[in-house]
Design a protein around this nucleic acid. Structure first.
Lengths: 330, 330
DNA sequence: CTGAAAGCGCTAACAA
DNA sequence: TTGTTAGCGCTTTCAG
């Protein structure tokens, strides 16, 4: 049923119907008539037709690398909270860690499907730059810092530096690094740089054989732990780029008789909820994910109001959370 | 820029442009012209305008109760895999466990925004029934069984029965139940019924004071565990409606000197990834979430082809996963 | 307050 | 193969 048919059923004009659904001038009489007809027929105006006319979608696209991540859901929560208040809906797109889908999703959203985009970014390629600069709608990037775009990010370097330093100051001599994809600037590079800076600041030469790169999950952390601990001398602390990776390391240690924190200390990043119920409760670094989402949304709103040509970068700080896995007496 | 302006720039007719973007008949010459112009101007046809004409969105709405859940992301993965192959995009809507938002999201999708809807359902109210039956697009419900609608669900009763029986057969005498929202038929009621049936089949009279209802998270499980263990005699096994709740109970036990499984056995449902790295690795029941998503998608596709008037219900089975938390010698 | 009419950007006959 | 043209369902002037 379309507006004309519905108007006939209700016994009013098309215009009256349109006004009813858009809070325009309308007599009580017609309002009632339309209300009843809508109740009976279940008529709802077509979103697409409306959008063609008004050019307003009241939709914001949010591109996510995955769903089951606590950090991502916290960011999204923040976005939703801010944008919801302004009457926006979210169009969530899950790329399942496939960077090509990130590009194609951006292409998708370019077709005026949404008023703006928030990209929970992972890696940044030339293709990203090219597509991002072609977008004619405002874009905000959360979780990474891409030169030339509006970003909200975390202090990944500082977080890694702090966690590593904590373990070094408790006496670790052979620190290992279990990192993430180096194409991922925030979680891959910055966290590694933070680790390395902490080592050099504490007068320790990095041992290249105590460095492994894992995928963003527990099983991968477990596998890489095997490699790390087959080394001689064994590492006496492992800094993991994420809590999930750390969970895998903890499992490995328990299965192989390595005592935490006596034989080896473990540190993660992200302060995920499971940290405190792990085989050994995990020391980690809390990043303010929800706040990042909220700021990302606020940034987008301001761009939506008037698209500025000055790009802003907002970096959020972190908090150390110490638990059993680094609880070694000095 | 719209199609007319763009056609002028490219030096061709509107129709040629339309054909270019829809793989219609077109000479190589024009194809090249348009390609170049598109490259230069960044023109992309408007999705909404197209949809008004074609009435096809190639979008499926997926309504989720929350994002950070492993089970939900697995279901979504299954949906995405099947629907992606058919060229559909997913419009994910996160209701954040707010049942009102579930209703309003359905209303939203009624405006012809999508071709069909998959609802990862929670509770079922009269309002749900009313809105769901007003939808003019196909709907499939995953995770619950709502009479009169197409559903894919799990054998929640059987899973709870099996897990409880396992613990009873290992000698538990005072089984406690830590359940979920009873308005949630699958996770709330069915799992409780399964627990109770197992008790009666093993000749045990349920002790009402050994029953608590938690929220779907660890912290709530922890809080409720306090109540359960303040009882006398203490429960010697706790069946938890979800793994997250069970994780909270495990934490409580560790903090309060209760040995698992010697003093108390713990069982969960869902087989979440963290189960094996918990303070005590958790016995659980694997439910086939991804498969459920795939079947939900297939059901929707068949409805999209021709809307049948016979509703189908598909129930998936489960697998027991035994770990340390119930590893008591008989 | 109301209705007629123009037109949003696009697609799909249709006739060439 | 092409371009012209008539809508898709809606909103929004504009003149009453």
């Amino acid at each position: 049923m379309n507006i004309s048919e519905f108007a006939k059923v209700a016994g009013v004009s098309k215009s009256a119907v349109s006004r009813y659904f858009n809070n325009g001038y309308l007599s009580e009489d017609k309002r009632r008539k339309i209300e009843q007809a809508a109740e009976k027929t279940g008529y709802v105006p077509s979103y697409n037709a409306r959008t063609v006319r008004t050019k307003v979608t009241k939709l914001v696209g949010v591109i996510l690398p995955k769903l089951s991540s606590e950090s991502i859901s916290r960011v999204t929560e923040g976005i939703s909270e801010v944008l919801g208040k302004e009457g926006f809906e979210l169009l969530l797109i899950n790329t399942a860690n496939d960077y090509n889908r990130e590009i194609s999703s951006l292409e998708l959203l370019r077709q005026k499907r949404v008023d703006g985009v928030i990209l929970l970014a992972s890696v940044f390629t030339d293709l990203h730059r090219s597509v991002l600069s072609k977008m004619r709608i405002p874009v905000v990037i959360v979780g990474q810092q891409f030169k030339g775009f509006n970003c909200v990010c975390h202090n990944d370097f500082g977080a890694a530096y702090a966690m590593t330093s904590l373990m070094l100051e408790k006496g670790a001599q052979h620190p290992a690094f279990l990192g993430a994809n180096p194409d991922d600037k925030a979680a891959g590079q910055d966290r590694r740089s933070g680790f390395e800076k902490a080592l050099s600041d504490h007068g320790i030469t990095p041992d290249k054989s105590l460095v492994e790169i894992a995928k963003f999950n527990m099983d991968s952390g477990y596998e890489k732990a095997k490699l790390l601990f087959s080394h001689n001398p064994k590492p006496d602390c492992v800094f993991c780029a994420t809590d999930n990776i750390a969970a895998g390391v903890i499992l490995y240690c328990h299965e192989n008789g390595l005592k935490i924190p006596e034989d080896v200390m473990i540190g993660g990043i992200g302060d995920s909820r499971m940290g405190k119920v792990l085989l050994t409760p995990l020391s980690s670094v809390h990043l303010h994910y929800k706040t990042a989402g909220m700021w990302g949304a606020k940034m987008l709103l301001s761009e939506l109001k008037e698209q500025g040509d000055v790009h802003r970068i907002l970096q959020l700080e972190y908090d150390i959370v110490e638990r059993e896995s680094t609880n070694r007496k000095i």
